[in-house]
């Protein structure tokens, strides 16, 4: 591919990412303004507050809530460009600061869960493709069951077994690494169910391909064939799913962080939802969108390196 086309493609990709962020911000902003509640009330103690009319008027002026919607929208975009997400209604602190303090915990949790899910999925896929029909049926059942486990239920069972009965692991997060084990497993198992399904099918497909057959003819062992060829083939779609998977994990973090009492974005979002703390909700949604966009760009690059054919197959969507 000529250099100019590569540059054009990169530029297009970045512009697309910027568009996604702008659209998410705009959609959230206007959606939030359909909310029946009064933001000034939310600022003055939220639901059940007994704020006076004077206090409400003062807050409206302070926060620019008495301005036309378009002016408020412009002001928000202006702030966003400079990285300012506004102030939380409930905590009165800058949203960016609040999210900054919570995001690492959630990202660490999501990243570890992604790795564990991969390990589980690859293991299951390798085993099941070498097992016979019965093994494959069992693996299929396991995958579907794992994918159908709600996080809150899995977490409760894990706590009951590994903390309360066996006493091996702490039931709530703490400073030690052991506090991460149960939350990571809770998030990883259902995801592993999805990934294993995907990889197993792709591996079976790959093993029927001409290159696999010829490799086998050259004397490649079954295990080697699986590891060297089929796995690489199977990993690609799963890699491409990583952007989606991270979104799925962050969304699962809402439940997992609540159960395991971990600080993080998920819990922040849940609390902000209950208090109708609009700037925090918008902030978290934007940050998650940013993470998704970056992750998608990264997987694009990775899969391009892993499989040069993609450049040829490339389609805009």
């Amino acid at each position: 591919m000529p250099r100019s086309r590569v540059l054009r493609r990169v530029a297009l990709r970045l512009a697309g990412a910027a568009f996604v962020l702008w659209a998410v911000a705009t959609l959230t902003f206007f959606a939030i303004h359909l909310v029946p509640g009064d933001p000034a009330q939310a600022i003055l103690g939220g639901p059940g507050s007994q704020a006076s009319q004077e206090a409400l008027d003062e807050v409206r002026a302070d926060y620019g809530l008495d301005q036309p919607l378009v002016v408020q929208y412009g002001a928000m975009l202006g702030r966003l460009v400079t990285g300012d997400l506004g102030d939380s209604y409930a905590l009165k602190t800058p949203v960016a600061e609040l999210i900054g303090g919570q995001i690492l915990g959630t990202l660490a949790l999501a990243a570890l869960a992604l790795v564990v899910a991969w390990v589980l999925a690859v293991g299951l896929a390798l085993w099941s493709t070498s097992a016979g029909r019965i093994g494959r049926a069992i693996a299929g059942g396991l995958e579907l069951t794992a994918a159908a486990l709600p996080h809150f239920w899995l977490a409760t069972v894990l706590i009951a077994v590994f903390s309360t009965s066996l006493g091996w692991l702490p039931p709530v997060s703490n400073d030690a690494a052991s506090g991460l084990v149960l939350p990571v497993i809770t998030l990883a198992v259902p995801l592993a169910g999805f990934l294993a399904q995907l990889m197993r099918e792709r591996m079976l497909e790959a093993l029927e391909q001409p290159f696999a057959v010829s490799a086998a003819a050259r004397g490649e062992t079954a295990a080697g064939l699986r590891l060297r060829h089929a796995l690489r083939h199977a990993a690609l779609p799963a890699i491409n799913l990583s952007g989606w998977a991270v979104g799925y994990l962050i969304s699962g973090a809402v439940v997992v962080e609540t159960i395991f009492a971990r600080p993080g974005l998920g819990r922040t979002l849940l609390r902000a939802t209950e208090l109708r703390d609009v700037p925090v909700v918008v902030g978290v949604v934007l940050v998650v969108a940013l993470v998704y966009v970056l992750m998608t760009l990264a997987t694009d690059v990775v899969s391009r390196f892993a499989d040069p054919r993609i450049a040829r197959e490339e389609a805009p969507a």
Binding site: I159, T164, P171, T258, I259, A261
Partner: peptide, 19 residues
């Protein structure tokens, strides 16, 4: 002073000696 919103986890944490 910790915040553990889930009642089952809170009780499990007490049983485990975390709190």
């Amino acid at each position: 002073w910790r915040f553990i919103p889930d009642s089952a986890s809170r009780y499990a944490a007490l049983q485990a000696g975390e709190v």
